[in-house]
Design a protein around this nucleic acid. Structure first.
Lengths: 105, 105
DNA sequence: TCTATAGTTCGAAATATGTCGAATTATAAA
DNA sequence: TTTATAATTCGACATATTTCGAACTATAGA
């Protein structure tokens, strides 16, 4: 447990979150705002709200909510209420960590 | 959604394979042979056989076999019989792909 | 205050997964 | 040919996951 995010169990939880096609699609949408020059999580214009994220995925709101909760539980995404909406975003450090895991160098 | 299927569903299957702590541990062991100067899959000395891979994981041989089959099914690892043993390895291209998926910038 | 919108929680049902032991196959060695 | 070792397949069972609809909470605006 020295570092939850990089331990085998913590990593496995993140991969489990990404193992569902719906959740992976949600994550990929959030990734699109993580581009050069953009500060994910700081630039609110680059965030998605829950409803918009689920657009076109054809799942019930309760299912969408459940999936986002799973993504958050394992540390893959962040959420914050903004009035009637709840905004979601990815901390770029999360992507860095996962990218490096597979980069054996 | 053909694009949705090829990119998202295939990836989700690989993440599902890595979502089990035992399978992730197996994959991590195989990753250790993917180091600079080593050609995974070509240098047989750098491969693990099934029995050695499961060493210390405390799972039944049948379970080990099942997990490796899952890793292979989604394209994460390769296997080849070598006499009494079956050798396993990772194609470095697989690691590149996954690393790049998370490398947004 | 009342209403509409956005999202969450809960309980249930169908399906998938992880695991084992027993039986089986493949190979090498005696 | 017989035996030992390495690994897989199969059947079973307990547990986990995915999904929904109904009910609920939170907020903004009229």
């Amino acid at each position: 447990m020295s570092n939850y995010k990089t331990s085998t169990v913590g990593l496995a939880e993140q991969f489990k979150a990404l193992s569902n096609p719906h959740r992976l699609a949600l994550f990929q949408r959030l990734m699109t705002c993580c581009v050069p020059g953009t500060q994910c999580g700081l630039d609110e214009a680059a965030r998605f709200c829950v409803g918009d994220l689920g657009e076109g995925l054809d799942i019930a709101p309760s299912t969408l909510s459940h999936h986002l909760k799973e993504l958050q539980r394992c540390g893959l995404i962040q959420t914050e209420r903004q009035g009637k909406n709840v905004h979601c975003w990815i901390d770029p450090a999360v992507l860095d960590k996962l990218s490096h895991f597979f980069a054996v160098r």
